[in-house]
């Protein structure tokens, strides 16, 4: 019962934090809401029996990736002017149409998953079994992920280097 309550609390926090993150005008505020949301989702991971994933979510997502965002926002130095501009762009006529579309999409998705039944978890999946799966049948996926990360590294290095070369 405790788990269920915790799940609903975490879900509510995650949803609210995400909505707030999406509607902020200040990028740093939005980022902090997003980190809250990610932490809440990490709680959900833990609750449904994926402790390894929960740890990774906190360490890599909330830690590493979001710190990248923070660095970039700091480098951009947006300030108050950006806030005003963002506020101006968040008028109802801007978001009303997309909101209706999203609503329709949501209804469709909910309709599709409404037939799913059963518990979300049949016991915790230990990091050991994840590791066995990763380096057993999914070794190709690991290779692909490493290659993807390598290309991401090369791409970001390339973009950043030219940026520095031009001295701007």
């Amino acid at each position: 019962m405790l788990e269920l309550t915790l799940f609903y609390i975490a879900s509510t926090v995650a949803l609210f934090a995400t909505v707030l993150a999406m509607t902020r005008t200040n990028a740093i505020h939005a980022l902090i809401y997003l980190i809250v949301s990610l932490l809440a989702i990490a709680v959900i991971f833990f609750l449904i029996g994926a402790p390894f994933a929960a740890a990774l979510e906190i360490v890599i997502y909330a830690g590493a990736i979001m710190v990248l965002f923070v660095f970039v926002i700091m480098m951009l130095n947006l300030g108050e002017k950006g806030d005003a501009r963002e506020r101006q762009l968040l008028q109802p006529h801007v978001w009303l149409g997309p909101a209706i579309l999203s609503l329709v999409l949501l209804v469709e998705l909910l309709y599709l998953i409404s037939t799913v039944e059963g518990p979300a978890s049949s016991g915790s999946v230990s990091p050991k079994s994840v590791g066995l799966a990763l380096f057993g049948p999914y070794v190709i996926a690991v290779e692909l992920a490493s290659m993807l990360l390598l290309s991401g590294l090369v791409g970001s290095y390339h973009l950043g280097r030219r940026y520095l070369d031009r001295g701007l």
Binding site: G49, L56, I65, S121, V125, V130, A133, L134, L144
Partner: peptide
Amino acid sequence: AHWGQPDGQVIFLLILSVAAA
């Protein structure tokens, strides 16, 4: 988690690396 298999978390790792890249 529903099936009690590690596959979901393997894909999560994949998504994580995609997000990072």
